[in-house]
Every structure is written in C-alpha cells, then in structure tokens.
Amino acid sequence: MDDFFTTSVLVATAAAAIRLATPYLLAALGETIGQRSGVLNLGVDGVMLLSAFFAYWTVLSTGNLWLAALVALLVGLIMGVIYAVITVFFEATQGISGIGIFIFGLGFSDLMFRQQVGTPKPVPRLPSVNIPFLADLPYVGEPLFQRSLMTYLAFGLVPLTVVLLNKTTFGLNVRAVGENPQAADSLGVSVERTRFAAIMIGNAFAGLAGAALVLQLGIFQPNLTQGMGFIAVALVYFGAWRPWGVMGGALLYGVVNATVLQWKALGIIPVSISDLAGMAPAILTIGALILLARRVHAPAALTKPFSRH
C-alpha cells in the first residue's frame, strides 16, 4: 500500500482518472440536456460507436485530429436529427427507439470498420496541452492542467451546460417542456422545436464523447465502447440531472477505475481476485448514491411523447 501513496503514483492515478472520465462526462452531459427536455436516449452508446469509428477513419485517412473531432461532431448531429425525428415527430417509445439506435450503431460501426479498415491500425493520439503556469503547479498541475484539449472541453462544458440550462431562455424552455409540456405549449413554447434542439445538442455531445475516446486511445476496434454509453446514462441519474452532479459521478467512476488498475499493477490486489476488484466502480457508484440519498425527482415528462390533443 505504501507504494500507492507516493506522489508520482497518486498523480498518475489522478491523471488516469480524468482521462477515463472524459468520454463518460461528455456523453452524460449531453444525455442530461436531452433528459431535462423529457427525452430519454438509450442510444448514446450507438452514437458514440459511430462517431468514434468515423473519427478514427478520418485520422487514418487524413491524419488530421481536428477534422476527426469535427466529423465526430457531425455524426453526432446526424444521429441527433434521426433520433429527434423518431422521438419528436413519430413519437416512438423512447426506450425502444434508443435501443434501436444503439443496435444500429453497434452493427454499422462494426461493418464499416471491417469494410474500410479491417485490421486495427494505430493512429496519432491527442497530444497533451499544458496550460501556462497552472501546468507547473505541484501535485495538481500534471493531472489537471497537462491534459488533452478534449478533456478541457469536457470539463469546460460543465459550467456552460449549467448556464445553458439555468440562465438562458432556451434552458428555461428545455426545463419547461421536460416538466410540463402541456403548460409550456400553452405558454407558446414549441415543445417539438425545444426537444429537437435538446436532442441535437445531446447527440452532438455523444459524438464528441466518441471522438474523445478514440482519439485518446489512438485505435478502434468493433464495440470499442463496451457499454460506456449505458454507464453514461446511469451517471445522469447519479448526478440527479444536474451537470455538476453528473461530473461528480463521472469522476467517481474514473477515480475508482484508475485506482483499481493502479492497485492491480502494484500487486495490492492479487491476481486471484482481479475480477472481484473489477466490480468496485459499479458497487461504489451505487453505494455513493445510497449514502447521498437525494430524493430528487426526475423531469416529470421524461419518456413521455408530446402531442397536442
């Protein structure tokens, strides 16, 4: 255990936790915005897979990481249009349509990968960008301020999402249609348009999450996300539909994962129980939520399609 409590190991663990948390945070923030408007999207994982593949393919063929992030964003927006049309205009049951999107993303990204790439080929990874002055701070400098731009973006989006939801007319509309669409409608807020926009933003974030994942790893393979999108949905519930809470959930998940991996590498966790230790992030997430015992209520109109009858 003493090996763990050295500065270099702790700093590395914190850095790993933040890297691990980045894609979860981006996806969960997007899902938060969607759910606040009353739309559950279980298809996040599918969107992440599609955007991750297309981002990877872009880097592979052009070498341009920025273009890759842009392509991922675009894929997220396209999937957003599709999901918004399905849920807002066709009023499809959200649980099932989301799973439909997930299954499609899983299959199509796999298919494209096999047709266009085949054998996994490494691509350049996102470089770390040091923030002047802050990066040189002792202890916190390395884990917090020597990260990739994708990580800064993810954490920077947390306060921006708070402002968006709480301080803008759009955010007010989003919360209104998520709580009481009938009332919002009678006040002249377009439920359809508001939800459409919220879904687009949410899926764009999911697209960025896919890009963050693949650009941090520098490699793609079928089902790269391994259910990350579903965990991101769970983190929205953990965070009680609040961006800071969602960030707390993503960080908790990342910290526990990183610590377990570090302890495995140090031999603190023996090989014979490595799988039991692998349960830790999920157990601690549930445990933390029991302790926090926040009796918050979900957006009242969550999963309920709206039609003016």
């Binding site: 090996d3 590395a12 890297r19 490699i219 391994q226 994962n257 991996l261 495995k264 490595s274 692998g278």
Partner: peptide, 27 residues
C-alpha cells in the same frame, strides 16, 4: 513482473490505462 487482468477481452480503454499504470510503476 506485474500482471494486470483487466477483466475484459474487449475493453481497449481499460487495457490502455492498465498499461499506463504499469509505466507509472517503472515498467
């Protein structure tokens, strides 16, 4: 030799971080 079993055949991200952890520990 430090051995990490990540618990998954497919989780590339965990495998990457497991490797990072080894490097932190002087591997």
């Amino acid at each position: 030799v430090n051995v990490t079993y990540t618990g998954s055949f497919g989780d590339v991200a965990l495998a990457a971080e497991a490797a990072e952890a080894h490097i932190t520990n002087n591997a």
